[in-house]
């Protein structure tokens, strides 16, 4: 299971990395493995607002569908357009080519309750 260090993780298995007020959001390796082959991804439009802990999109495999929960509040400044065309990127490379949205973060304290890679590792071990 690939859980890169330096990222923040949510209980719903999203990851987020923040660089200069811009948060990049995706889902973890664990999440993509549990879903299986991803067939469809729905993301918000550029310029839309997302709110911490609210759904911002969905991800589907053949027989499962999950809501995506935003780890942060803010305005979507960019979405990963190539990913919408090739959802398999989410399976092959969830942390790089499989990123989903970039959000302009208003309040960095949004990150405070998120897990570190070590905590996330423990969290998924407990769950399984």
């Amino acid at each position: 299971m690939n859980i890169p260090k330096g990222l923040h993780y949510t209980k719903e298995h999203e990851w987020v990395s923040v660089d200069d007020n811009i948060a990049t959001v995706g889902i973890s390796d664990f999440a993509q493995q549990s879903l299986g082959d991803v067939t469809y991804i729905q993301l918000p439009k550029e310029g839309e607002q997302v709110r911490k802990d609210d759904p911002f999109g969905i991800v589907e495999s053949v027989k499962a569908v999950s809501d995506l929960y935003s780890p942060v509040t803010g305005r979507v400044v960019e979405i990963n357009l190539p990913l919408l065309q090739a959802p398999e990127l989410l399976n092959s490379d969830p942390y790089n080519d499989g990123w989903m949205i970039k959000v302009e973060v208003k309040d960095e304290s949004d990150l405070e309750d998120l897990m570190s890679s070590e905590n996330y590792q423990e969290y998924i071990e407990e769950k399984s």
């Binding site: 469809y40 589907e60 495999s61 053949v62 027989k63 499962a64 569908v65």
Partner: peptide, 9 residues
């Protein structure tokens, strides 16, 4: 596209 359906959603 069965994920639209009641038995999954």
């Amino acid at each position: 596209l069965a994920t639209r359906e009641q038995h999954i959603r």
